[in-house]
C-alpha cells in the first residue's frame, strides 16, 4: 500500500514538472540576452568612440562586418605586456580575413607618457585607443586587466577572457571561431 502511494506521488511530481516545463516555455523563442548592450557573452558589445595614439577617432560599431578583439590593457600590467606580441602576430596573420584588434589603453589609470614608447618597443601596428575618462572601463565593467572581448561581425560578444596572458593557441582558437561565424 505504502509502495503504491509512493509511486503515485512520484507520478504526480513528474506530471507537475512536465506542466511547469510547458508553462515556463519562452514563447518568444529568443533568449533574454538579445541585443541588449552588456559586456557578456551573447550580448551586444557596448559601443564607444575613442581617439587613437595617432589622433584618429574610432567607433566600435563602425567595424560591423569585421571580427574584432577589444583588449583592455595598461602598461603597468605584466600579463597585458606579455600577451601583446601574440596579439600582434595573429593580427598580422588574420587581418586580411577581416579580423581587427582594438587595444584600449586604460589611460585614466595608466601613465599616458609610457603608452607610445611601449607601442614602439613592441612594434604594435593595430589601433591603440586611449580611454582617458574611464568610459570604456565602466561600460565593460572592468575588474581585472587584461580583459578581452571577442566580437563577431554582427557586434555580438562571442567570448570574454578575463585575465592573461592569453597564449597564442587560445587567441588562435577564438579568432578562427569568430571568422567561421
Amino acid at each position: 500500500m505504502q509502495h503504491i502511494q509512493r509511486r503515485l506521488s512520484y507520478t504526480l511530481v513528474l506530471i507537475t514538472a512536465l506542466a511547469w516545463i510547458f508553462i515556463s516555455a519562452d514563447s518568444s523563442g529568443t533568449p533574454t540576452a538579445g541585443e541588449i548592450p552588456a559586456p557578456r557573452q551573447n550580448f551586444l558589445a557596448p559601443d564607444f568612440t575613442l581617439d587613437t595614439t595617432l589622433g584618429e577617432s574610432i567607433t566600435l560599431s563602425d567595424l560591423r562586418g569585421q571580427s574584432v578583439l577589444v583588449n583592455l590593457w595598461a602598461t603597468w600590467c605584466g600579463p597585458c605586456r606579455a600577451e601583446m606580441p601574440a596579439i600582434q602576430k595573429l593580427y598580422d596573420e588574420y587581418k586580411a580575413q577581416g579580423f581587427t584588434v582594438l587595444a584600449v589603453n586604460m589611460t585614466y589609470q595608466d601613465n599616458p607618457f609610457e603608452v607610445v614608447p611601449f607601442v614602439k618597443e613592441h612594434n604594435l601596428t593595430f589601433p591603440i585607443l586611449l580611454d582617458e575618462t574611464g568610459e570604456v572601463g565602466k561600460k565593460y565593467q572592468l575588474r581585472s586587466l587584461p580583459s578581452s572581448f571577442f566580437i563577431d561581425s554582427y557586434g555580438i560578444i562571442q567570448e570574454v577572457i578575463i585575465g592573461g596572458p592569453m597564449s597564442e593557441a587560445l587567441l588562435r582558437t577564438r579568432i578562427e571561431a569568430l571568422l567561421e561565424n
Binding site: 511530481v13 512536465l18 516545463i21 516555455a25 519562452d26 514563447s27 523563442g29 529568443t30
Partner: peptide, 24 residues
C-alpha cells in the same frame, strides 16, 4: 524558468528543463 540565458529548443522549451525532467 527564471533564467535569462536558457538554451531554447522547439516550441520555446528550455533544454535544461527537458534534460532535468528525464533525470528526475
Amino acid at each position: 524558468a527564471f533564467r535569462g540565458d536558457s538554451v531554447i529548443i522547439l516550441g520555446g522549451l528550455r533544454l535544461a528543463q527537458v534534460v532535468a525532467w528525464i533525470f528526475l
